[in-house]
């Protein structure tokens, strides 16, 4: 199922990130090819969010390298130290990477439609009418077109998260990052959000998803990665990851606990 283009879409090489003395990312390397769906699992504080945020340059790494479409991205080296690239380059990169947050982070003062139109209009400079059609199309995809004029405060968590997905999609990103998209939801609302993500996966979107939903991982993922203490301990296709009865007891006990 690999894309003809052999260059990985995004690649992290030996990235490290410290918060004070604490190593949130400790020499992490991960490669994600076009069309790949990678699920990351791991205990709280293992660095999953930090890894995802680093890929979107919301977090500045201390060392290592991030390549987007084969090219080093987001950093310059000044006197042997990594420094974030200028804002223009960072913004250009981020427009190609969509991110969905655990807490939705919808713009509270804009309607559903306004939220989804905002990126295309403000960042890409699209005409309002054009952006509106695009936004409605994206809302249709997540089943939220009928709530276009509502404000976020009037929506359920599941509805908010689907709008957040539509907002990210409206930028036509090459990569989607989901950081525990259903953790803040009531159990009965989890399904609708995963339906929307699954639909996206079937369309061939490249995505990295932090989740503890093993059913989703089994069904959708090309590979599942397990993180602990800032390291990726294992990254395998789901059949192997769940199937070979993990030789690593820590992973097995973690999976057993969350299932």
């Amino acid at each position: 199922m690999k894309n003809a283009d052999a260059t990985p879409l995004i690649e992290c090489r030996n990235i490290r990130k410290h918060f004070g003395e604490h190593a949130a990312l400790d020499d992490v390397s991960i490669t994600v090819d076009r069309g790949d769906k990678v699920v990351i699992i791991g205990p709280s504080g293992s660095g999953k969010s930090t890894l995802l945020r680093s890929m979107n340059f919301l977090e500045t790494i201390d060392s290592g390298e991030i390549l987007f479409e084969g090219k080093p991205a987001g950093y310059r080296t000044v006197n042997g130290k990594l420094v974030l690239d200028n804002q223009k380059n960072l913004c250009a990169l981020r427009t190609q990477i969509g991110m969905v947050f655990q807490q939705f982070n919808l713009f509270a003062h804009m309607t559903v439609l306004g939220n989804v139109m905002e990126g295309p209009v403000t960042v890409l400079g699209q005409q309002k009418a054009e952006a509106r059609d695009l936004a409605l199309e994206m809302l249709e995809k997540v089943g939220m077109a009928d709530k276009a004029e509502r404000y976020p405060a009037t929506l359920s968590g599941g509805q908010k998260q689907r709008v957040a997905i539509a907002r990210a999609l409206a930028m036509r990103p090459k990569l989607m990052l989901f950081d525990e998209p259903t953790s803040a939801l009531d159990p009965e609302l989890v399904g609708e959000v995963f339906e929307a993500i699954k639909k996206l996966a079937l369309e061939g979107m490249t995505m990295i998803i932090v989740t503890h939903n093993m059913g989703f991982a089994r069904e959708v993922a090309d590979s599942v990665a397990f993180m602990e203490d800032g390291r990726i301990l294992l990254k395998d296709p789901p059949a192997e990851f769940f199937g070979k009865d993990c030789e690593q007891p820590r992973i097995k006990s973690f999976i057993d606990r969350i299932m």
């Binding site: 919301l58 947050f101 990126g119 403000t122 960042v123």
Partner: peptide, 27 residues
């Protein structure tokens, strides 16, 4: 204004100025 608003704006590719003008200050 919750930090998540600025992060969401940046994740869309907005500059600091755009995020302030369109997202943070109006709220």
């Amino acid at each position: 204004i919750p930090a998540g608003q600025m992060e969401a704006a940046k994740a869309l590719g907005m500059t600091y100025g755009q995020a302030m003008r369109r997202v943070i200050i109006p709220q």
